[in-house]
Write a protein that binds this DNA or RNA. Structure first.
Lengths: 123, 123
DNA sequence: GTGATTTTGATAATCATTCTCATTTGTGAT
DNA sequence: ATCACAAATGAGAATGATTATCAAAATCAC
């Protein structure tokens, strides 16, 4: 594993949640480990192929990455302030497996994210 | 409903499956009903808000649209051939609402996508 | 160390999507 | 029908994430 890649993955580990490539780029810069944007993308791409990160897309199409395997869980994210709560969902896991089986699919993974407004928002 | 929007949705109906905005644009052109690209995007955007089309993203981030007859549902997508099955998940809806309530979140929406290998794949 | 191979990063190129704004079309009242 | 005003349209520019390019720097094998 190249040095850059390990640095990128370490950053993902620290954040814990889903982060975009651009965010990783900024984080590394602030951490004093400036890394080329292209390099960040390359690292995330490889990691995705190797299944060491989960990838999902925001509504606007931007890709978000998360280190996977570290205790599977989901997120409840406030659209307004970004507050993120980790939530456990064994119900969802079971549901996903059942659905997969019923449709003859194997090696099924799933992406489940919840978005809303947290209690602080009074809109 | 504006004329353009109905033309766009008609095209989606004809194709049946998932199509990109760019493809719709080309199809309309070939059909002799040339429509501005911006207009195609606007029509699809509105339709998405109204939940009259399903939106999902290809791996490269391009958005795909499909006329959806029924209400809210999720997708089970084959990573290999792209085959997509619509799955209903009232269990998931309930779970999402409960989790949201427990955490004081309001107006919660969720993203749930399942990925796997369909029966045709013998890897 | 020397040369080959890989990795990196600055920048340019790509491409879907959104924005802008002038023009056209539809609508409603009179 | 006509006028006035709102909504829709389209051509092209602007945006922004991602990818490609390519020369310089780090790494490896010997």
């Amino acid at each position: 594993m190249s040095k850059s890649k390990s640095v990128v993955l370490t950053t993902l580990e620290k954040t814990g949640g889903f982060v975009s490539a651009q965010e990783v780029f900024q984080l590394l810069r602030k951490q004093g480990k400036p890394t080329g944007l292209a390099t960040v993308y390359r690292a995330l791409q490889k990691a995705a192929v190797e299944n060491s990160v989960d990838v999902l897309r925001k509504e606007d199409g931007e890709a978000l990455y998360r280190l996977c395997a570290t205790g599977h869980h989901h997120h409840l994210v406030c659209k307004n302030c970004g507050k993120t709560v980790e939530v456990e969902g064994s119900a969802v896991e079971k549901w996903a497996n059942t659905v997969a089986k019923n449709n003859g699919f194997r090696k099924v993974t799933h992406v489940v994210e919840l978005f809303g407004l947290c209690a602080k928002m009074l809109i």
